[in-house]
Write a protein that binds this DNA or RNA. Structure first.
Lengths: 235, 235
DNA sequence: AGCAGTCTTTGATACGGGTCAATAATGTAG
DNA sequence: CTACATTATTGACCCGTATCAAAGACTGCT
């Protein structure tokens, strides 16, 4: 039977642009994959082209310099799209942070299918434009913010994005588990693990956040965080 | 008469996806604008939605923090597309760096036209994907590179991009005029103007580059620059 | 429970790049 | 050509974050 009809991200992934017949046709070209934490799906520079939908889990996109310095350039969640359609080689690694479940397509198959289904391309375009906006905001963070501003911005950003999985309430939440360890937070913010640890403990000492366990964050004073996050990013 | 038929970027801009009739229809919705250096076409946060093609000149995309710190998040050249189709508000300022000539469309008009012309959306998608890749590479630069590495990477990048205007030869060139002052270079690289000045003079003292006038750069030792750009180790 | 390995925190110190200030070069108007 | 504004360079100093090192906390395994 066609697994797409029961797919949990059917209505949120780019597949939502397709009707039942179309989604079945796309589904035939797809392959399901389970990934364990730390497993890499796509390597920077490889040209075996692969695209995918994330069904479950969290993955990071990262690049690095030859001496090992690493920068995380994106984080993807269920219903997000992974990979680079239309023939360019992969620009970054894609690695699972948690157990993950993805639905992969060979690049060529997907490209052909997309070109025949403009609504699908349209969905993909909207997503890509949104992701570009988000990435450009991150340039401001990396280029111009201090460590405290970076961390405050990061925590607020997480409190907004991490609601999605269950889709229960929308709007930010005040307590959540990060899918990242300290090193990964550092790689997202362009800092060292030590600085992340120190600034996080500063926030804790000031009563702005609580850190009941390694990966859990409670936002106790959202206003204060927002104040630190920017000497006010001009909205 | 329809000005699009004689447009200098007709074959390079997204319009190249359209046939003569289509481009004429799009042309009817467009307005030509001349911009002087420093003039801002779109302001961060405004929702008067406007998109445009660059016909001539160079423009910067920038965001800033309330205390004046600024980050340039993109630079656009002739034939590039500007703006955010499909209803999100403008995320950054768009300002002319040189005299510029653009062809603008109201967001709504363009959105409608695009949805009816999948080849146009496809071109736009390819461009947006490429721009996202480029922007993500910049995250690595801002987050993880030293001042010298940033500057070396920047100069190499410029030597590749600045060929375009005349389209004479492809491949990098070794002498060019930057469309930026020192402050703007600093805002691109997440540095201060003083650091840009110092590192540039270091390169000059080592014979890696020549700086015959304020905005002119000559790459004298491309290998050395490339060595610095990818992970520091000089010589 | 006890141990090993990993991840995180904490402390001491160093250094790159920022800040502040002064000077120099370049551009522009009269 | 001179005067003034703008932009860039240079110097001295300092601060924030990186680096290096060690101790502590958590996790999983037997």
């Amino acid at each position: 039977m066609d697994p797409c009809t029961t797919c949990v991200v059917r209505n949120r992934a780019i597949c939502s642009a397709l009707d039942l017949n179309e989604v079945a046709a796309l589904g035939k070209m797809g392959r399901h994959h389970r990934l364990v934490p730390g497993q890499t799906l796509i390597w920077e520079g490889e040209d075996s082209l692969l695209v995918a939908n994330v069904i479950e889990g969290v993955l990071k996109l990262s690049t690095s310099l030859s001496d090992g310095r690493e920068q995380i350039v994106g984080v993807v969640y269920p219903s997000d799209f992974i990979g680079r359609p239309f023939g360019a080689r992969a620009q970054h690694n894609v690695t699972a942070l948690t157990e993950a479940h993805v639905c992969t397509f060979s690049g060529g198959d997907f490209d052909r299918f997309a070109q025949e289904h403009p609504q699908l391309e349209h969905k993909l375009l909207e997503r890509t434009l949104a992701e570009l906006d988000r990435t450009r905001r991150w340039l401001l963070l990396l280029g111009r913010m201090t460590a405290s501003e970076k961390l405050a911005t990061f925590l607020l950003d997480m409190s907004e994005r991490l609601v999605r999985p269950d889709c229960s309430s929308n709007g930010p939440i005040n307590a959540f588990d990060l899918p990242f360890g300290r090193q990964q937070i550092a790689d997202i913010l362009g800092l060292t693990i030590e600085t992340v640890s120190r600034r996080l403990n500063d926030f804790k000492a000031e009563g702005i956040i609580g850190v009941p366990s390694r990966r859990r964050i409670e936002i106790l004073d959202r206003e204060a965080l927002a104040g630190i996050a920017s000497s006010g990013s001009v909205r």
